[in-house]
C-alpha cells in the first residue's frame, strides 16, 4: 500500500475552536484516517514535523514570534497551506488589539494601575517576562500577511463540512469549490 499523504495542523492565535470543528466532522474522521496520516498536530500531540506533509491546516493568526516561527515551519514542510477560520484569515478576535500599542495592550491585561487591568491581582504591576514567553508582535497578522497561503476557509469556526469538503477535494485532486452555504464568516 502506498504511503498515505500527511496532514499537519496547528493553532496559533486562535481559540482551538477550529480544531474542535475539525473533530466535528464526526464519524467522517474515520474516513479521514483512511485517507491521511496526521503529522505535527495538537490532535495527536506530535510536536515536530516527521516529514513532508501534503496539507497544513492553520488555525489562528500570528500574534507573537513563536507563531511566526510555526507558520514559517508549516510553509516549509507543507505542499498546501490552508488558513482555517477567521482568526487565520483576518486576525479575528485577537486582532481587536491592533488599534492599540503593545504597551497599552499589556497594561490593559496586567496592570492594576488606574484600574486598567480588570481582573488581575497584581499589586506590583508585573508584566510577565520569562525568557520562555514568546514576544508579542506589534499587531496580530492574518497568516497570509506573513507567508503565502493556498486556500482560505472562513468562519468562526470554519464549519466542519467546509473543512471536510475542502480536504477531500484536495486529497482527491478535485477543485476546491465551496457551495454558498459553506462560505460563512461567523
Amino acid at each position: 500500500m502506498a504511503e498515505k499523504p500527511k496532514v499537519a495542523t496547528t493553532s496559533m492565535a486562535g481559540c482551538f475552536g477550529c480544531h474542535m470543528s475539525i473533530l466535528d466532522i464526526d464519524e467522517r474522521i474515520l474516513k479521514l484516517i483512511d485517507l491521511v496520516d496526521f503529522d505535527k498536530s495538537p490532535i495527536d500531540d506530535i510536536k515536530e514535523f516527521t516529514g513532508r506533509c501534503a496539507v497544513g491546516l492553520l488555525e489562528g493568526g500570528c500574534c507573537n514570534d513563536e507563531n511566526v516561527k510555526t507558520l514559517k515551519d508549516f510553509r516549509e514542510h507543507c505542499d498546501i497551506l490552508i488558513a482555517v477560520g477567521d482568526c487565520a484569515t483576518m486576525g479575528g478576535i485577537p486582532a481587536l488589539r491592533n488599534n492599540m500599542s503593545v504597551k497599552e495592550c499589556l497594561d490593559e491585561a496586567y496592570s492594576t494601575d488606574n484600574r486598567k487591568g480588570p481582573a488581575v491581582h497584581n499589586p506590583d504591576n508585573i508584566i510577565p517576562n520569562d525568557p520562555e514567553l514568546p514576544l508579542l508582535l506589534d499587531k496580530v497578522y492574518p497568516v497570509q500577511h506573513v507567508v503565502k497561503i493556498d486556500y482560505f476557509l472562513p468562519g468562526c469556526p470554519a464549519p466542519a463540512d467546509t473543512i471536510w469538503q475542502s480536504l477531500v477535494a484536495l486529497l482527491t485532486d478535485e477543485p476546491v469549490e465551496l457551495p454558498y452555504e459553506l462560505i460563512k464568516y461567523d
Binding site: 484569515t89 483576518m90 478576535i93 486556500y151 482560505f152 476557509l153 472562513p154 464568516y185 461567523d186
Partner: peptide
C-alpha cells in the same frame, strides 16, 4: 463578522458570499 450583530443580515457580507469571497 464573528461577533457582529448584523452578521447573517449584513448586505456587505452577503455580497461577499454571493461573489464567493473566501478572503
Amino acid at each position: 463578522c464573528m461577533f457582529c450583530e448584523k452578521s447573517g443580515n449584513c448586505e456587505l457580507q452577503a455580497l461577499a458570499y454571493r461573489f464567493g469571497v473566501t478572503t
